[in-house]
């Protein structure tokens, strides 16, 4: 088994996910299934093939340094759960 309880708990913590016992068991199994499937790729000979950073045959997509209008503040804050003095209010951090 590649993914054990400790790994799932750590990843959940990093992702700020609160998992119960059932979910932890479920994700251990599911993540191992996924990784086992990915293992199949290891049988492919990749000798001499450069690592791929991007799946599309694109490079150097850039824009000129020209200012575009920003979004109206009202719209930006429309989805803020808590707006205080034109800013996004967020709960205690640490």
């Amino acid at each position: 088994m590649m993914i054990d309880r400790a790994v799932v708990e750590k990843v959940a913590q990093l992702s700020r996910l609160a998992l119960d016992e059932k979910e932890i068991e479920l994700y251990i199994k599911q993540l191992n299934d996924i990784l086992s499937t990915m293992e199949i790729l290891k049988s492919i000979d990749t000798e001499g093939i450069a690592p791929l950073a991007h799946v599309l045959p694109l490079k150097n997509v850039m824009r000129a340094d020209e200012v575009q209008p920003s979004m109206a503040k009202k719209e930006i804050l429309a989805n803020a759960p808590d707006e205080i003095e034109g800013m996004f209010g967020v709960p205690k951090i640490v």
Binding site: I84, G86, F88, V90
Partner: peptide, 12 residues
């Protein structure tokens, strides 16, 4: 201070 703050305000 950040550790005693009741919350924070974000300006992006």
């Amino acid at each position: 201070t950040i550790t005693t703050a009741s919350g924070s305000l974000a300006d992006y």
